[in-house]
Simulated assay, not measured.
Amino acid sequence: MVGTGTASAGGGYGGSGGGKGPTTLAEGLIGPLHLDVQRGHKGADVLVSQSFAGTISKVRSGGSVTDLVTEPGGFTGGVAGGPFGTLLYLSNGEQGAFLKLRLPGGQTVDLADLGTYEATKNPDQVNTYGLQGASPECLAQLPPDVPGLAPYKGDVNPNPYELAVTPWGAYVADAGGNTILFVEWSGKIRTVSVLPPRPEVVTAEAAAGAGLPECAVGLTFNFEPVPTDVEFGPGGLYVSSLPGGPEDASLGARGGVFKVDPRNGRATLIGTGFLGATNLAVAPNGTVYVAELFGGKISKLVKGGPRTVLEVTEPAGLEWSNGRLYATTDVNTSGKVITFRP
């Protein structure tokens, strides 16, 4: 039920990180895909986006849940506390895709029209996705009822998913546009980085599973990078990637982590092997933690790959605060907010 929550000791979790088990801060949430932690003199409050309900809520340190924003029929994305008692959140629905600002008095204003920006700029049109290097004869054999197999340029597809707030504005990870954007407080938008495609060599097994012709074996297939989070960390921005295509393990664990230089937009893939990298958190020492939605665990990036920290059910949102990780779990059933020391 929206707007209700309980505080209780966590149970039924397994971990290999050596830390204490998690504590459940709230449960009964509807699609809690995103969260942010606000620390105060009385402890930590958690802002949570109940995305499937179109609701932004606050989970107080005592466990109570208060709804702050409700957009019936909408989908709320990332949420973050802003300056002077404001909060920012992403919204994507029939009215368009926006970065919105909630004022301390409860009024909500549209800070930036991200959907119009994507429609007019389409930054990732510089990328080519799909099967690369195939002859016309081979392309003619591709299944006609499966879209996205033949080469195509990045198209218009706004899906602002996560954000990170700075004193000068907010970075936004657009999962549909495959971009990292920056929105100034004036509402001006600019493209910081267009993430590169995620290439995979087509194996005989993959071709058979996807119904691709034999001529595709050995060629490269460029998947869309699909950024799902952006966070600050040592030396730049850190971005989780949930590559397009099958979201299960049929093609392996293909989720990754990029490091982006905000000065020139250069994106470097620094980690792979995550199964559903839907969010990440960066500790002050530079350790990167990743929520693996389809892997059922929270991992940390070690030598370019994942190392399990905690096994959980359907983790989605992830944040670091004051030596603890905060996560949303069970996002397709009775969603929870948990916290633990890794």
Rank of each mutant, 00 (worst) to 15 (best):
Y89A: 03
T166P: 07
T6A: 09
N159F: 11
G244P: 05
V260I: 09
T24A: 08
L90R: 12
L242E: 04
V172D: 01
V312Q: 06
D248S: 13
L87E: 03
T23N: 03
E319D: 14
P144D: 04
G176F: 06
N127G: 01
P158A: 04
V59S: 02
T278A: 05
G40E: 03
L149G: 02
E319Q: 15
G236V: 10
F75S: 06
V202P: 04
Y171W: 08
L181F: 01
S91W: 08
T339G: 03
A134W: 08
G15T: 14
S250G: 04
D145A: 14
G85N: 10
T333K: 11
T70G: 02
T66F: 02
E205S: 11
F84I: 01
D174Q: 07
P143G: 10
G105S: 02
M1A: 14
A53K: 07
K336M: 03
S241Y: 03
K300Y: 01
G3N: 08
T23W: 00
V192A: 01
Q125C: 00
S135F: 08
V126G: 15
S64N: 10
N92W: 05
T339F: 05
G133V: 12
L47R: 13
L280A: 12
P246F: 06
P144Y: 03
L29T: 11
G154A: 09
V202G: 02
G21W: 00
P143S: 08
G256Y: 02
H34P: 00
P342R: 13
G93P: 01
G256V: 03
G130Y: 11
D45M: 13
A97W: 10
F340C: 06
P147W: 00
L35G: 09
V46Q: 02
E71R: 15
K20E: 01
T108P: 00
G176M: 08
S186V: 09
V65M: 11
L142V: 07
G211M: 07
N285Q: 12
D145Q: 14
V226E: 10
T333S: 13
P262V: 06
A164G: 00
D110K: 15
K336Y: 00
V69T: 06
D330N: 15
V217N: 08
N127E: 03
V260M: 04
N264D: 12
E247I: 14
D174H: 11
G273S: 10
L301V: 15
T55I: 14
S135I: 09
E200D: 14
P284E: 08
G177S: 15
L101Y: 04
K297C: 05
G63I: 13
E118N: 14
L114V: 07
G154R: 15
S49D: 01
G265W: 07
Q50A: 09
A80K: 15
D45Y: 12
S240W: 04
D145Y: 12
A253Y: 11
A44F: 09
E27N: 14
V230Q: 04
V156I: 15
E231T: 07
A206H: 13
G169R: 07
V194L: 05
Q107T: 13
K188E: 01
K20I: 00
A291F: 13
L139Y: 05
T4W: 11
T55D: 04
G244A: 12
V260K: 04
Y171S: 05
A150N: 10
G273P: 12
P342Q: 07
